[in-house]
Nucleic acid binder design. Structure first.
Length: 418
RNA sequence: GUGGGUGUAGUCAAGUGGUUAAGACAACGGGUUGUGGCUCCGUCAUGCGUGGGUUCGAAUCCCAUCACCCACCCCA
């Protein structure tokens, strides 16, 4: 038990680490191109931040948070990124900087859920947020950034789906109309949908049960109930995306599960990685800051799951280049050569060359085999003979060609850099 | 929380009640003391997720338990 990591967590081993480095760099690069700066907030926050931000009726708050009491405070490991960022920009009055404020982050999040493919209890996400405007240009930029990032990695089978979930006013009107429509046939729906009827009837629209799908046909969609402002905004967003040549489909079934969202909702979805196909999800949250007691600050952003992204990359057969390996192994025979080898290794490393030495002190054959396994381009041999002659033997591993050069650092460096 | 699947070495596995638990890859050692990728030899589970039980005998049957995977719900 103690020898196994807790359920829903994963060790990131060296054989995977280079992939994470790669996507992290790619994401940071795209963000920089779009003018986003990184923000890092604490891994835990006051519980109340999430209760009021994410919403006290959501599954996340009701049953998925890691919460504990300490010194009469209730603290919670962040289950998502946006609330804390909103808290931070209010706290530090960043809204006084030139607007908009464009931020990105790369964080672990924690939710107590039953793990499955593409879902862990500690998971990792990228996110971006744009604050200080409710202009749909910001929404378009946020979507464009995600689109660029995903496409830039070579992913083909991901679809952008967008929707508008309106403002609190038009959403209420739609809910009422929806319940009105569904009520006559309520008994025929599946059990989950019966639950959804009260909690969130919108969810009934994308139930997977064929029976429900049939019953739901012709139901009033949110888009039919948007108020004039919301309707204009949604049209504005679509025209912006079109201008950016970003392909999208309107999916009225997209409903954000966090209470703070309004207006724009979008997801990047794939069906190549199992049931949890949303690799990126986001939207607008103009009332979040106020609902946590901060100043009014409109915002829009997304979260992008890194584990899911890596699953998609694998499903798409996209190979992530491994990081630069070892250039040279310095092999030695005997005690005096060992010390000479250690010193040479140190000097080569100081010259910024990736060098290894065999700490198992195997025989020469073993050291060559080790060099081979490491993928070293060169093996340098230092034995008693070389020390006496003031030379070293350098073998090019690919061609098996061997040269003997004077035991001088610059000669050696010149040879192994060839 | 509810379902389904799977647990034999670092990895992939054979084995379905009877003597010392195949095999492959990896790892490590070596093939007469200085050269890798090929080849050859050797080492590597008193142990079959864990605990009980049935039996003369259990990796194999029964019960319990744990872990992992997948799906529902929900979300990244």
């Amino acid at each position: 038990m103690l020898t196994i990591a807790p359920k829903g967590t994963k060790d990131m081993l060296p054989s995977e680490a280079y992939k994470w480095h790669f996507i992290e760099k790619a994401f940071a690069d795209v963000c920089q191109k779009y003018g986003f700066k990184e923000i890092r907030t604490p891994i835990f926050e006051h519980t109340e931040l999430f209760v009021r931000g994410v919403g006290d009726t959501t599954d996340i708050v009701q049953k998925e948070m890691y919460t504990w009491e300490q010194a009469k405070r209730s603290l919670t490991l962040r289950p998502e990124g946006t609330s804390a960022v909103v808290r931070a920009i209010g706290e530090h009055k960043i809204y006084a900087d030139p607007q908009p404020t464009k931020l990105y982050y790369n964080i672990p999040c924690f939710r107590y859920e039953k793990p499955q493919s593409g879902r862990l209890r500690q998971f990792h996400q990228f996110g971006v947020e744009v604050f200080g405007t409710n202009n749909m240009m910001a929404d378009a930029e946020v979507i464009a950034l995600a689109y660029d990032f995903i496409n830039g990695l070579g992913i083909k089978d991901v679809e952008l789906q967008i929707n508008s979930i309106g403002c609190p006013n038009c959403r209420e009107a739609h809910r009422a109309a929806l319940r009105e429509f569904l009520k006559p046939n309520l008994e025929e729906f599946c059990d989950t949908c019966k639950d959804r009827y009260d909690r969130n009837p919108l969810r009934m629209l994308d139930c997977k049960s064929p029976v429900c799908q049939e019953l739901v046909k012709g139901a009033p969609t949110m888009l039919d109930y948007l108020c004039d402002d919301c309707k204009t905004a949604f049209e504005d967003l679509k025209s912006n995306l079109t201008a950016l040549e970003i392909e999208f489909v309107v999916n009225p079934g997209i409903v954000r599960g966090l209470d703070y969202y309004n207006a724009t909702a979008f997801e990047f979805v794939t069906n190549s990685i199992g049931a949890q196909g949303t690799i990126c999800g986001g939207g607008r949250y103009d009332n979040l800051s106020e609902s946590i007691g901060g100043p009014p600050i409109p915002g829009v952003g997304f979260g992008l799951g890194k584990e899911r992204l890596l699953l998609v990359l694998e499903a798409n057969g996209i190979e992530i280049p491994n990081e630069e390996g070892i250039n040279t192994l310095v092999a030695f025979m005997g005690d005096k050569p060992k010390h000479a080898a250690l010193k040479l290794v140190k000097e080569l490393r100081a010259a910024n060359i990736n060098v290894e030495i065999d700490c198992l002190a195997r025989n020469l054959k073993g050291q060559f085999k080790y060099a081979d396994r490491l993928g070293a381009k060169n093996t340098i041999v230092i034995g008693e003979n070389e020390l006496e002659d003031g030379k070293v033997t350098i073998k090019k591993m690919e061609t098996s060609e061997q040269v003997i050069v004077d035991f001088k650092l610059e000669n050696i460096i010149e040879e192994i850099r060839k």
